[in-house]
Amino acid sequence: MSEALAIKDPFGKATTGKLGMWLFIIMDGLSFGGLLIGGAALRATAPSWPNPGDLLNIPLTGFNTFLLICTSFTMVMALNSLEKGSQSGLKKYLALTLAGGLVFLGIQVYEYYHFILDGFIPSTSIYAAVFYSTTCFHGLHVLSGVIYIACILYAANQGRYTAHDTDQVEILGIFWHFVDLIWIFVFTVIYLI
């Protein structure tokens, strides 16, 4: 083929799978946007809205937020190790990320459990409805992320990835960082303001 006919690709070297994941997180972000803006609209028209700090355990969830940010760091380290050719580093950091995700979910379940014991359930108030729908939607993302990490960790254990073949780990990273980033928004909107 002649040089003139070659297609210029604005996305450069990004693999097709990576583009697919980017597109997916844009769509997923719009779903979160729908929930958060919907919650904000309800708040704007509600006759009363509780101060989240009076109902929720902010320090505990603050710790959870910190933990989730740390798992983003370990995810970066996992990819970094793989790029340097360290299989053991990849496995170690993926396992740490997995553990972090599980602890996050555990704390969220603990939080829900105590709320439900205290009678704070989704039908209690419109605030409770917004709280549960948004945090649970995010929690399901963390759960999918944890399962996803477990699959990649399993494949890494079999030596599927090399320093020249990092694509699958990078795609996992995009998803996990997204789950992290969106939590910052959820935490701010639902817990802090």
Binding site: S31, F32, L42, T45, Y127
Partner: peptide
């Protein structure tokens, strides 16, 4: 999809996102 999930919650676990006025038991649905 987000809207449908909220509608599904209204129908299944008793949230009241879209219920207002005399039908609602909590304030603030729309």
């Amino acid at each position: 999809a987000a809207g449908l999930i909220l509608l599904l919650l209204d129908r299944t676990i008793g949230t009241q996102f879209f219920i207002a006025g005399g039908l609602a038991t909590v304030e603030g649905g729309d």
